[in-house]
């Protein structure tokens, strides 16, 4: 599939735009990637770096795909394993709704997976099952080698605190807490004292580029900044998995790109598994794998 990369010239007075077209399907090995990089450097000169960063991402995707095809990813070692997962919603006076039907899915540590599908396909429900935000009607959910159905309420709370992190479409920050406090609150169930929590929260906010906005309330932050706070909060307890439900749904394209880059960096730096629910195919392209879902079934 052809994808056009558009580079905006840094000279704002001329607004010179350059572009380079290439077919992503042709990037099927390391050699072709190196050839592409050379073409970009020759054509864009000093302005090539952004494009080269993008190509690095594509290279990573290809490498992981190659590894998977070689069998380096083993389902029994999957950090997320769903078997026969179904979820039925029942409302009084209405016929039941099958949100998920017999879903089987395995994801290994370090993968970045996009779950993509039309509205009402069950994407968010699937994420909620994996994140222990809801209980399946039937089927098994094994996360980090723990069967969620065997956990009691307290264990599930601890699981949500220690093992996973959530990023929501509408950010869901506490409105009267500062950015620092919103991140710190996620660590209240740990043994850290108040000062330690604040130090860690400050580090995380710095990591996501908000070191100068720590004491601002969510209402004083832009959408992109709020989402970055949300990501910092999700990272608070060193989770193995981050679930992001339409993380760029409320953001513009520039902010969206920043967020996705952030996820990728998190995955690389911390070997965190990232699951992104999205309807945006361009975001899916940044992921190792795309899982398509429709009418509650994995396609």
């Amino acid at each position: 599939m052809k994808e056009e990369i558009i580079l905006q010239n840094h000279n704002e007075s001329t607004l010179e735009k350059k572009s380079l077209n290439f077919d992503t399907d042709s990037l099927d090995n390391k050699s072709s990637i190196e050839q592409l990089k050379k073409r970009v450097s020759d054509q864009f000169g000093n302005d090539a770096q952004l494009i080269l960063d993008s190509i690095d991402e594509v290279e990573g995707i290809i490498l992981r795909r190659e590894a998977r095809e070689k069998g380096d990813f083993d389902d029994s070692k999957a950090i997320i394993h769903l078997s026969g997962l179904s979820k039925k919603y029942q409302s009084s006076g209405m016929s039941p709704v099958d949100a998920l039907r017999e879903v089987d899915l395995s994801i290994v540590q370090g993968e970045m997976v996009a779950i993509i599908g039309p509205s009402g396909s069950g994407k968010s429900t699937l994420l909620q099952m994996m994140g222990a935000l809801d209980i399946p009607t039937t089927g098994g959910v094994r996360i980090n080698f723990q069967e969620l159905s065997e956990m009691n309420s307290k264990e599930l709370t601890q699981f949500r605190s220690q093992t996973v992190g959530f990023v929501f479409q509408k950010f869901n920050l506490i409105p009267n807490l500062t950015a620092l406090e919103n991140v710190s609150i996620a660590m209240e169930s740990t043994n850290m004292n108040r000062q330690e929590r604040r130090v860690r929260a400050a580090e995380l906010l710095k990591e996501v580029g908000l070191n100068k906005r720590m004491n601002h309330l969510p209402g004083q932050l832009s959408g992109g900044e709020q989402q970055r706070v949300s990501i910092a909060r999700a990272l608070a307890n060193h989770p193995k998995i981050i679930y992001a439900d339409e993380p760029t749904g409320s953001l513009d394209s520039r902010a969206s790109k920043t967020i996705i880059s952030l996820f990728d960096r998190i995955r690389k730096n911390f070997n965190t598994t990232v699951i992104i629910v999205t309807h945006n195919h361009s975001i899916a392209k940044h992921c190792d794998r795309t899982v398509k879902i429709k009418d509650g079934r994995i396609r």
């Binding site: 935000l133 309420s153 307290k154 709370t157 949500r160 992190g165 996620a186 999700a234």
Partner: peptide, 12 residues
């Protein structure tokens, strides 16, 4: 719901 999702115990 958000507080529960980020792992805050019911007691808090």
């Amino acid at each position: 719901g958000v507080l529960k999702a980020i792992g805050l115990p019911n007691s808090k």
